Simulated assay, not measured.
Amino acid sequence: MFLEKYCPDPTVLTAALHDELRVQTLHEGQALCSGSEEADCLWIVEEGLLQVMAGGPIARRERGEIIGEMAFLRGAPGSLPVRGNDVVAAYRSKVWRIDRSTIDALAGETRALWYETVARALVAKLDEASLQRASQARDLNRGDRAIARLVCPEGVQATSAILLNGAEAIPPVKRMAVIWFSDLSGFSAHSEGRDAVEVGATLRRLTDPQVEEIQRSNGQVDKHMGDAVMAFWLCPDAPRLSKGVAGATRAALEAARRVQAAAAEASAPVGIRIGLHLGEVSVGDFGGGDRIAFTIVGQPVNEAARYEQFKPDTQQSGGRVRVSDAVFELLPNDVRASFLPSPVEFFDKHRKRFVAFLSSN
């Protein structure tokens, strides 16, 4: 079968090799050869399945396929041939064994015919490996895209780092951050009794503008929580803090405008609240068990949520975007102009005082 598939003149090699063939039987899990050992023969599979190993199975050899021929071509001319990988029987298998001395004794046209046959078999293996690599590359790309949709960029980078260095977990670090919380007010009531597909389409229509503006200003979406969004801008130094504050606030103002326009187009009586705050947070994996949950935690995160949840008096206009006094202090004048000049005070359930500046629309 092997010669019919790869050899231009099978009868010549059949005659040259027939007397030297030996059959070797392997049971499940038995090694046919080990990587780096001296190669004294090659094999052709008669029945069963052999797996080429490199930590795990990387290739399989079935009936009519050759194993071990590459060892004779590895290394400098005249050096001892050495195996490249372990080969193990997946289940009970039989192989024809051809000794190295038999190959070495081939002469003239027969020897040339043998190496042409081997070359054709190697080309088939290379084609198979190319297809496998292409498939793996597609799988990796799909996996990367899936991870990027589930984890913020900072989490993707940290996860890639631990995969490369073999660490067990992502160590948390302290960073200054601008924190965003947003919520679609009235969306739950609007969704009541409506078709699930319709609800999902409307929610995406109102969420996409927020995500687009966050990402356009180099922010990172931490998570979606129903009709709410949490995001952050890491700001490890003063210049990036000023840039992050201004970028996040501009993104919030534009997102609020776009969401209100989209809600009007969809005839959805839905509003939006966006709260922005800043402070030092812990960034890392705060999941439990085997589940990774890359996020930011700390008191500033809790406080940012309070700014989003604040409900101004009905007499007050505007306020779709509300920023803390710490954020407002760092805003450039052109962005400050989008906010009411006088701040408002409110208290949480623990009577902690908060100061907020509300957008003028």
Rank of each mutant, 00 (worst) to 15 (best):
M1K: 10
M1N: 13
F2E: 09
F2V: 11
K5C: 07
P10F: 01
P10G: 05
A15V: 10
L21C: 14
L26E: 02
E28N: 14
G29H: 13
S34R: 15
S36E: 11
E38T: 04
D40N: 15
E46I: 06
G48N: 11
Q51R: 14
V52Q: 04
M53I: 08
G56H: 14
I58R: 08
I58V: 15
R60H: 15
R61V: 10
I66Q: 02
L73H: 08
G75F: 05
G78D: 03
G78I: 05
S79E: 09
S79G: 10
L80M: 06
L80I: 08
N85I: 02
D86V: 03
V88G: 03
A90L: 06
S93H: 07
W96L: 12
W96Y: 06
R100I: 06
T102A: 15
I103L: 14
A112W: 04
Y115T: 13
E116Y: 13
E116D: 12
R120C: 13
L122S: 11
V123H: 09
L126Y: 14
E128G: 15
E128H: 15
A129K: 15
A129T: 15
L131E: 15
R138G: 04
N141P: 01
A146G: 04
A148I: 07
V151A: 05
E154W: 08
G155Y: 06
I162A: 07
L164P: 07
L164G: 07
G166Q: 06
E168W: 09
E168Q: 14
P172F: 07
A177Y: 08
A177N: 04
V178R: 09
F181Q: 00
G186T: 04
G186M: 08
S188M: 06
A189L: 13
H190W: 15
H190S: 04
H190L: 08
G193P: 00
V199K: 03
G200H: 02
L203F: 00
L206D: 00
D208C: 04
I214S: 01
Q215C: 10
R216F: 09
N218Q: 11
G219W: 06
H224F: 14
V229G: 01
P236C: 09
D237S: 10
D237F: 11
S242H: 14
G244W: 04
G247Q: 05
G247I: 01
T249Q: 06
L253R: 01
L253Y: 00
A255G: 00
R257Q: 04
R257H: 05
A264I: 09
A268S: 14
A268E: 05
I272G: 03
G275Q: 02
G275R: 11
H277D: 05
H277Q: 00
L278I: 10
D285K: 07
F286P: 03
G288T: 12
G289W: 01
R291W: 01
I292L: 15
T295D: 03
G298R: 05
V301H: 01
N302Q: 06
A304Q: 03
A304D: 02
E308C: 14
F310M: 13
K311T: 12
P312T: 10
D313S: 13
S317F: 00
S317W: 02
V321K: 02
R322Q: 07
V323W: 01
D325A: 14
D325Y: 02
L331F: 06
N333F: 04
N333G: 11
D334T: 05
A337S: 11
S338H: 11
S342V: 09
S342D: 15
P343Q: 01
V344L: 04
E345H: 12
K352E: 12
R353G: 10
V355A: 07
V355E: 10
A356F: 01
S360I: 00
N361G: 02
